[in-house]
Nucleic acid binder design. Structure first.
Lengths: 145, 145
DNA sequence: CCTTGACTTGGAGTCGACTCCAGGTGGTAG
DNA sequence: CTACCACCTGGAGTCGACTCCAAGTCAAGG
């Protein structure tokens, strides 16, 4: 399959796909006799893997280090696990931060719904909090948790 | 409190704090007679709010739009809810992506631990998968889920 | 034969979010 | 008095990750 189809399947632009190849995230793709990239299934799998990791914020240089190890062979297994484990740790930290932000967003949206008089989805937070609402404009329900 | 203390408390650099102020994320801080920023509790609360939102990836221009509405008064409540709700939606999407990536990372780490002969934490995935391991190097356990 | 359209390249440009710097001021301590 | 330190400003620089562009090549259709 050619670059347009890969682009359509993955949602990545052709430019991004070429950029990933230039950056070494994806192995040089085989070409037909006129120089056009022809992607195989394994290429697509790599691209989808990279895409998945990128969506979670893993940086390109780390990903490059990882795929280089994969291409280097079985003896790099331990190093790969090391990279993946470190990245998982950072991902978990980001997830915790984002969960906390989500809680705060939910809380604020709920509070604002009350103030708008439309009522919250589950009639929480009666009037006491509305009084405090102005100063709560930026405050978390549980500041440092 | 002065900028150094805010920096230490939040972990944001003094440069970043000034940058946030310049960008309008934080209201101009009051100064002492020699022009030095003196942060109050509400300033700190705003900064912590911004920090929380930034950690979750909310862009600065959106945050600026939001705080402008807050400063504009009560009649902007509906617009604020709109912003927060949209951002919550995008945050949820990111969280789903990241959760999927986490699953894949866990799966791969587990798989690699098996291959390294150290055994997985809960003896899953005996030998059949190890045979497929090479081609699985980039594949998700559930590709499109 | 000529045009059209999808592809190619190398390199430059953009964007968001900081981060750094030079040069200047003000209060305090030796 | 001088040195030092933390602070100030405007502006430039950096970084990661794309994104765009001009100019060129090929295969197929009219």
């Amino acid at each position: 399959m050619k670059i347009a189809e890969v682009s359509e399947r993955t949602g990545l632009s052709a430019d991004t796909l070429r950029f990933y190849e230039r950056s070494g995230l994806v192995r040089p793709v085989t070409r037909d006799r006129s120089g056009i990239r022809v992607y195989g299934d394994t290429d697509l799998m790599r691209i989808e893997f990279i895409q998945c990791m990128r969506k979670a914020g893993l940086p390109i240089d780390v990903l490059k280090a990882y795929v280089d190890l994969v291409d280097a062979g079985e003896h790099t297994l331990a190093d790969r696990v090391e990279i993946l484990t470190v990245q998982r740790g950072e991902l978990l930290a980001r997830l915790r931060d984002m969960q906390q932000t989500l809680d705060l967003l939910n809380y604020k949206i709920d509070l604002y719904h009350n103030k708008l008089g439309k009522g919250s989805k589950r009639g929480r937070r009666p009037s006491k909090d509305v009084t405090r609402a102005q100063e709560m404009a930026y405050a978390a329900p549980t500041p440092a948790t």
